[in-house]
């Protein structure tokens, strides 16, 4: 793999994380009143049992973002903290660190999302490819219409319907959560099965509502690729149509499809965050939802940076895998 390509992709990784962190830093400061300060003062004025806790939070906050310091100094310091994944403390769950709360939730989100997205991507890509293949069976074309319609429905609304149908009405699946309440997470087979059982409906809602998107996009790529000279020439050479399809058309259509997987990550994650809310799944989406309701700013901003970091990492991995699929990459700009 050419070094400058690698360097460029790693630079993109840092730019994405930097952009996310910077948005977090400046946005609250652009509002007429600093909302974090407001929230802390409000918490302080309530007094009561938590008062000493709040004073500690305010002290931390002032120490970090004290207005006596110039803005650029605050900013540099903030970036340093982000680099160490230090997002401050939770206001609602003092003295828990925001990063601990988020890191506890992150595996749930990553697990659900990675598996569901990969399944949807694989199914959708295969379906889209078959839709563009003249020899594929006719029933696929009937299957495609409802799948495309499903892709027009937001993940979480489909999730709501599935919970109602499969969970509430038919009682086949749990109504929510990541595992049965009362059990403790442990590395046992029974617990793993329990987690799997709880993830089926949320996963299904992600898969069902995104498979059509991938199918449609892959179908477009296939139609484009099938007009290419190398596909016509492969057919002219008397290759079997199955070989032309898989080794020439499909193989090349997969390249732009993989690129759009990287580009769609943001969209996929946005949808999945809301799916977690619907299912009360113990991932970062639910953490975010609770944080928003209690205006737990440090947790909110921590979630945002962590998710952006995770996406940037996935994108980086995809970009590094990509040259293995496309030998031309070293020669392209």
């Amino acid at each position: 793999m050419p070094a400058d390509y690698l360097v460029r992709r790693i630079a993109v990784f840092f730019i994405i994380v930097w952009a996310g962190a910077t948005i977090n830093f400046f946005m609250p400061r652009m509002a007429p009143v600093n909302p974090i300060r407001e929230r802390l003062l409000q918490a302080l004025s309530f007094g009561g049992a938590g008062k000493t806790d709040m004073e500690a939070v305010v002290a931390t906050y002032e120490a970090r973002f004290g207005l006596d310091q110039p803005l650029w100094k605050q900013y540099v310091r903030y970036l340093g903290d982000v680099a160490q994944l230090d997002f401050g403390v939770s206001i609602a769950y003092f003295p828990s660190k925001a990063s601990d709360i988020i890191l506890r939730a992150l595996p749930w989100t990553l697990g659900l999302l990675t598996v569901a997205t990969l399944i949807a991507f694989a199914l959708g890509t295969l379906l889209g490819a078959l839709l563009a293949w003249p020899k594929s069976p006719a029933f696929l074309h009937y299957l495609s219409a409802p799948l495309l319609a499903l892709s027009a429905i937001p993940y979480y609304l489909l999730g709501l319907v599935l919970v109602f149908a499969l969970g509430f009405t038919l009682r086949l699946f749990p109504l929510g959560g990541g595992f049965t309440l009362g059990t403790l997470p442990s590395p046992t087979f029974a617990f793993a099965m329990d987690v799997l059982y709880h993830s089926i409906v949320p996963g299904l809602s992600i898969v069902l509502s995104s498979v059509g998107f991938w199918a449609l996009s892959m179908r477009g790529m296939m139609v484009t690729v099938q007009g290419e000279d190398y596909v016509n020439y492969a057919e002219a050479r008397g290759l079997k149509s199955r070989d032309v399809f898989f080794r020439y058309a499909l193989r090349n259509a997969l390249l732009p499809q993989t690129t759009s997987l990287a580009l769609a990550m943001g969209y996929v994650v946005s949808g999945a965050v809301l799916v977690e809310v619907v299912f009360a799944y113990p991932g970062v989406g639910t953490v975010l939802y609770r944080a928003i309701q209690t205006f737990d700013y440090f947790v909110i901003y921590g979630v945002v940076v962590m998710v952006i970091l995770a996406i940037a990492l996935v994108t980086l991995v995809l970009d590094i895998v990509y040259p293995l699929l496309d030998p031309r990459i070293a020669y392209k700009r």
Binding site: E228, D229, Y230, N232, Y233, A234, A236, R237, R247, Y248, R251, N252, L255, L325, D326, P327, R328
Partner: peptide, 14 residues
């Protein structure tokens, strides 16, 4: 057949 557009006639990823 030796095709007209031989420049683009070979599969770029094989």
């Amino acid at each position: 057949l030796i095709p007209q557009g031989v420049m683009n006639s070979l599969n770029p990823v094989m």
